[in-house]
Design a protein around this nucleic acid. Sequence first.
DNA 1: TTGAAAGCGCTAACAT
DNA 2: ATGTTAGCGCTTTCAA
Lengths: 343, 343
Amino acid sequence: MKEIANKAGVSVSTVSLVLNGRDEGRVKSKIADNVRAIATKLGYQSNPLASSLRTGRTHILGFISEEVATTPYAGGMILGAQTAASQFGYMLITVSTDGENSESEEIAALKRYGTDGFLYAKMSNRITHVPSSLAKTPLVLVDATDSLGKIPSVEPDEFQIGYDATTRLVKAGCARIAYVGCLEPLIAQDDRLEGYQAALRDAGLDYDDHLVVNVLNNGPALTAVSDLFDAEHPDGFFCFNDARAWYVYECAARRGLTVGKDISVVGVDNHRVFAETLEPMLTTVELPHFEMGYWAVAKLVSIIEGRSMDDVSWPATTAPLPPIDAPIPAKIHCTLIEKASVK
Amino acid sequence: MKEIANKAGVSVSTVSLVLNGRDEGRVKSKIADNVRAIATKLGYQSNPLASSLRTGRTHILGFISEEVATTPYAGGMILGAQTAASQFGYMLITVSTDGENSESEEIAALKRYGTDGFLYAKMSNRITHVPSSLAKTPLVLVDATDSLGKIPSVEPDEFQIGYDATTRLVKAGCARIAYVGCLEPLIAQDDRLEGYQAALRDAGLDYDDHLVVNVLNNGPALTAVSDLFDAEHPDGFFCFNDARAWYVYECAARRGLTVGKDISVVGVDNHRVFAETLEPMLTTVELPHFEMGYWAVAKLVSIIEGRSMDDVSWPATTAPLPPIDAPIPAKIHCTLIEKASVK
DNA sequence: TTGAAAGCGCTAACAT
DNA sequence: ATGTTAGCGCTTTCAA
């Protein structure tokens, strides 16, 4: 900057003003242009650390995720967040906390670097108790719901997921539609189940809880789904995610049933691998991970900078994003992707 | 720091010396102890940005990954890297570059923040051309091989993986052992295939390339594996990863064959989801993702600080890590995890 | 063995 | 409309 000031014959303060775009009506436009020209010629790159020292703003965002980065879930979320961050001139520091133990330490470490704000992400939409160390900083939850409903959050529309998936199976002519759900107490599980029930109701079908099995992602699951096959002979399956869809595939294969012909399956695409491998067999509801990440960052930046983000151009999305000032918590609409598993 | 200096009745320079552990023989130990005590009492946290401004060291490491963070592969790698980073007092900034396009931009952004060094990770061990923007900085490759063999890298022992997996199948009494490999040109693919061949040779079995199918992770794969079943009737399968193992499971199920009874399967556990879901059916070779990440960071730190890392205590590992000064590229030994799929 | 002082690169109040 | 000056929190000569 000193070098630029010399070449331009002005002071560093002027250079600072110009390069920060605060020269409107303060610096003669001719001088300003000259400064800008010299800066580009010299390939000047501001030192964000130095300005941070003065302004207290680091343009660093902390992305705290419980396993999100380390498990197949929600990969696109980070990509979306990163895209938004770099678009808005921020840097994203992603921290995966394995258990609850290291979490506060990691947060403390981030804070020492002067993080401007935090994103707090969970693996699957659930009621979340936010660590107290995050209380006083700008914060946005991703795929999680604040227990008090006071913290901004970005979530998929879980009810709609259940409703759309089930409706698709109804339209495919399925009469005995099963739900292979999740045993953990998740918002995602509860709301999708409600969507499933509502769709059945709207289609004039009775809800029968014998057609619902909630399982974990482990050994007993296969037995449970197997029993469901034999006891209820469902012809349609709405699966909580693609890992659970696998159990249906395995059971079908063992019984000589073909997915897309004898039975229909719609699953939520949570683990990309499954969906890719089962493709083109699995019809999926796509979770808008990228959009959630992107929008959460946009929201966080709007909070930090105290300005509306209405002027940002959203990246291509699978579904229109709600306005940035939408009520909290805001739901993102999910899209049903048709493949070949529904007859 | 000023506050500490006041309370201790010394100058900030002294405080700086003490708090940086450079007081040996320079500051009276009584004063030093007093300073330390006051610092802890006050809960002093150094401002890393301010010291960076002076020292040019940020203690920030850039982790550049092509999709690593966004796909199921190699999740533990980031966790391992993060663990090591925080243990050595570094912060890890993870950047996922989707294609080649944004990569140089992201690197530039990281460099502006004064990153001390970089990790460059790939999804699967392959010959890698390192971007020129990374040429002049401390750099360690993770699960990748430098085309010139001059850049430090941390990789799994791919040959050993193939050898161990195949040998396990031989010991289970399999006589017709197939390899379901990967169609892409990867170090992982080539070396594992060699390991497979070597193990057959050592067991006195003939290598027959009809028993090898290399597939991508998509539609045609299922057909290819299906054809392999019908044409060759293998009784053992070594699979490049768990996604490919799924095809074997699907084919076996459709033919009324039971894995672990009629056929045996050993696969490399690349996507945790599959392995978890197929559990306890799939015998896996575990890729030491965590260890690779951890060790890569340790190596990078040793380069940056110009010191040996011999004194660091490694975290619990599946296998002993090679010495930090091991020849480049260094291979990490992988561990075979026994489950129930091998009769 | 300690302290005073300069300065890392930048911003912002205050002068002019 | 521009320049001067004083720091942000820390490290590091250099002098005492």
